[in-house]
């Protein structure tokens, strides 16, 4: 008896669990746009919420085991506040940096959420920002900012001192159209979710184009406005394929492996919420019987990150939760 793996060996993925529920404060999220995961497993989720519910705009610190730690930040322009948060990243000391694409600034917080400092000047000159959309911090504690409106990637010291840049507007190799998410791999390569070009671009640490993955569409390996990207320890690439409501997985070569469309079961906090509301339990059970896929599926996944255990965490933006998948060393039965 033979098996037919067609070259895609050594990889099985399995849905693990979901985290969170829709909340404007506390044990849930509201229109989360990104997360950063610390070596100790703390997950910082930045919630964008919306204008008439500014109470939903903050960073929520949790674990993927669904423990609530704290929340910090608020809607506004003052120190420690933000209006249109897009991305968060951690430095080697555990400080958190948050990008605000409306205020064109980066705010720094301690790991406990104390505001430390801010920097950023609107514009298109060296070191100026126009809609920072993605943040990553490399092994040398340099910050790499996806300067989306300027269609370029800029490198800074953590205090905001400008170092270098690459990229311009366009669709050729090394050019961008409103890029959004960013990831670094273990070798320092930079991966950019080139949002309106429907592709991921891979660069060397100094900005040399190495490869592009994806094309416009909803088919295998295609993308519709990808906005998040992550790379695991094996070099496999995970792309939040925003408007296709899925996460696509690519081998380091760029070959399509599989995709996650979402399999969410109720999270712990989700169960807690329902437990206090029998009418909603009844309504949900009827709805679930009619259309189970609706609640399980990803809806506008917005960010994907790898945790210290190698788990794949996906911000399920519209459903206000995180879906977690695991990559099994031993082939997993699904």
């Amino acid at each position: 008896m033979s098996t037919h793996l067609f070259g895609l060996t050594n990889r099985t993925y399995k849905y693990s669990h979901a985290v969170g529920r829709a909340e404007f404060a506390g044990t849930g999220f509201r229109n989360a746009t990104d997360m950063a995961i610390a070596p100790d497993g703390t997950v910082y989720v930045c919630n964008r919420s919306y204008e008439n519910r500014p109470d939903g705009v903050h960073v929520t610190a949790i674990t993927l085991d669904e423990e609530y730690i704290t929340e910090f930040g608020a809607y506004g322009e003052a120190d420690g506040e933000f209006m249109w948060p897009t991305s968060v990243a951690l430095d080697s000391k555990g400080n958190l940096y948050l990008a605000d694409e409306w205020l064109n600034r980066i705010s720094k917080f301690t790991k406990d959420g104390e505001f430390v400092s801010k920097w950023g000047t609107a514009g298109s000159g060296d070191g100026e920002l126009n809609g920072p959309a993605g943040l990553a911090i490399d092994a040398d504690d340099n910050m790499i900012v996806v300067d989306s409106g300027n269609n370029r990637i800029q490198k800074f010291a953590l205090d905001g001192k400008y170092i270098s840049q690459f990229g311009s507007k366009g669709s050729d190799d090394g050019q961008f159209n409103l890029p959004w998410g960013i990831a670094l791999d273990g070798e320092g390569h930079i991966y950019i979710a080139d949002w309106r070009n429907d592709r991921i671009q891979k660069f060397t640490a100094d900005g040399q184009h190495e490869a592009s993955i994806g094309s416009t569409g909803s088919g295998v390996g295609q993308l519709n406005r990808p906005n998040g990207v992550a790379v695991d320890a094996d070099g496999d690439i995970y792309v939040a394929d925003w408007m296709n409501n899925r996460v696509e997985v690519f081998a380091p070569t760029g070959r399509y492996i599989t995709e996650f469309r979402g399999e969410a079961e109720l999270s712990k906090w989700g169960r807690d919420k329902l437990a206090s509301n029998p009418d909603m339990i009844r309504q949900r059970s009827l709805a679930y019987a009619n259309n189970p896929g609706y609640e399980k599926n990803l809806c506008h996944p917005c960010s994907v990150k790898i945790d210290p255990q190698g788990r794949i965490a996906i911000i399920d933006h519209t459903r206000n939760r995180i879906q977690v998948y695991v990559k099994e060393a031993v082939p997993a039965l699904v």
Binding site: A22, M280, A287, Y294
Partner: peptide
């Protein structure tokens, strides 16, 4: 039957 507002 639609889903209720909570939890998602």
């Amino acid at each position: 039957p639609p889903y209720p507002p909570f939890p998602h």
